[in-house]
Design a protein around this nucleic acid. Structure first.
Lengths: 210, 210, 210, 210
DNA sequence: AATGAATGAGGATTCATTCAT
DNA sequence: AATGAATGAATCCTCATTCAT
């Protein structure tokens, strides 16, 4: 039994409304991308009239950018490397990979929207795209740092190549799961990925020493 | 009496018009996705009136599907494994990877559109998406076959996992290049990817034998 | 008894539709100015859906500009000076003034819209304004030419001052009539205006000779 | 215990706020006319939220009317005829014309808005229009009085015609200057206008006596 | 005296599609 | 084989205004 919708004429509450709009927008834009996200659809999903959305956000571009911005921190948090005492380097890397995978399974909308934005090449680049790419660069930097610290002896170029490869694998596995659904065990695949990249890294470092 | 040469630009040529429409449509849909591809935009890009597009294609869905279908063969051709005499298994796998990478650099629109279609979750699934996923499954089967034939001793599950991983890496690297442009050497990264997967495969096979 | 509206689904007739749209647009924009002219209102007045208006005109700006352009010739025609044999210079000038006045009484929309456009200072100048000011400059040149040819001995500066004054009087009298309606005998006032300007001109010329 | 000085920008000052709103409104409405003046634009220009505008003014119509009303006195003051001792009738008339011209150069917004309101014919006549036309009638009466007192012997009809002509010239010259900017020396043209009308008046009076 | 938030109506414009020729 | 014209539904966004605080 849901509460009766008497809250219609509600005491104006900006913060909550903003959240409701964003909640609706993440879901829709995560499913349909930028163009596919119509303001009326968001309006219907959050229960506020379209014109109210424009009180909180300058325009559609601003709304989508806000959607990306809000998921920002949650997303980056998954990239935190556990303590040194928590295990071997490989175990620690694998743990991070597993965490990222789990966060993607729980809240795939962020990356789904982000990737759609990233792939599109429209005349006027949406601000959301820019923001997404920035967040992504931060994540990338974290990975590069992990690689350099956990596998000593890697030269800068190798670190960059491995990072690119690591990120690519993550994106690709995510896409795979989006396409094939639960048939893909994302956590397992991410852990495998982490291991393969780790192996490759240690071999690269060894080859260099020689 | 032959009909006088009126101001008709050219004697109507169905085949050529169809090509022109498709050329415009690949480009636009490859840049903007399904929703972002408006018939007017395609019309403007190909120089034919919108109504003419409807003479050649039933509707927008049909047009986008045709775009995918046309790139179909070109795309699959890149997956052909070279002759046995042409080198070691690793060399052969690497060659395939290089070919696929090259075809992606030359004509990225197909995969860009495909991935956008794949990521979107719209109420009525576009036919183009279905077709893309089918082509993708064929490509996947070819890769699985390669794995099984070049690395004997792999059990079916390992083949599937490796194939998933191989495809994911390819998608991810492609995305990477779409984002970072020429800074990413797609051919080199694909070759590295091929090698890592090949190594992983042989190790898996070895472990199993033991 | 008007013909029954069976012409609903009419054989597409671009030229006629364009005229109907323009007819509606002159009237509305002549009464309400640029901002006051809504496309829906034009649509309602001409019987074509709003989207059809966009088939014929790029946007509202284009429509308003076309309104001005269409009245262009009619308007300038009134400025033709009659033959030399038709009377004394004063009589000929007075005749022109009368003609202009009559054309303004018959079709005041052109000048009403034009003046509103001219007075407005909006960030993005409407193209219609530009066009109106150009037409106005042509009319101005014709008047200057008349002055110079009918009142010999006027120096260039005097011609310019008199022309400015002549045009100003015409605009002002028109405004007067718009405000007070038929209470103002526009033709009589224009003729008086012509005479006063003519007198001033001859006096200026005389003073100069002295 | 006095209330703590919270973050209120200033202690609310009704009179000043009202002024700020009106200042913004004159400028915007003087540039864009009735329809072109949006409450949001006024709000942005004066720095007060839109809802505050509604605290001071009933609605948009009321705001525009207030704009006209405020300029009211300033405007009419320019029409005061100087003392008899200050010169010949022509000199005195010329002085008034110069004053009016100067006030128009300094604050053109009032007349610009007024003329736009006067030209428009909208279903519900804005109150601002009514007010403007009333002020205008007062000015007109002053001119008529001047004519009758300075040029004795004019019959009522002539006074009316001359007044109409005088006002028309003023409006027209103002429009001219709005279009051509500083290229038009408004004061000089107004003085010329005064002289021409004065001449015409004396000639009319003379002809009548004869 | 003022304002943050909300809202329905209406604004311009674009869309996919159709139809008569 | 092709197209000019038309069209209803949908798009994004702005408007004037209100209301609770």
């Amino acid at each position: 039994m849901t509460k009766p919708q008497t809250t219609r004429k509600k005491r104006a509450n900006g913060v909550e409304s903003r959240q409701r709009i964003l909640d609706a927008a993440v879901e829709i834009s995560g499913e349909r991308g930028y163009e596919g996200t119509s303001i009326v659809a968001v309006s219907a999903a959050c229960g506020l009239p379209a014109s109210s959305i424009y009180w909180h956000f300058k325009d559609k571009d601003d709304l989508i950018a806000a959607v990306i911005e809000r998921s920002f921190d949650t997303w980056l948090a998954a990239f935190e490397l556990p303590d040194e005492e928590s295990g071997t380097p490989l175990e620690r890397v694998t743990a991070v990979a597993g965490n990222v995978a789990k966060s993607l399974v729980d809240a795939p909308d962020f990356l789904r929207l982000g990737l759609m934005l990233a792939l599109e090449r429209r005349p006027a680049e949406p601000r959301g795209r820019t923001v997404f790419l920035q967040v992504r660069d931060i994540a990338r930097a974290k990975i590069a740092e992990m690689a350099a610290s956990l596998v000593p002896g890697l030269d800068e170029e190798s670190v960059q190549i491995l990072t690119t490869y690591a990120v690519a694998g993550a994106d690709g596995l995510f896409v795979q799961r989006e396409i094939n659904g639960d048939a893909v065990d994302l956590v397992a695949m991410f852990e495998l990925h982490a291991q393969l990249v780790y192996d490759a890294a240690t071999r690269m470092a060894a080859r260099r020493k020689a």
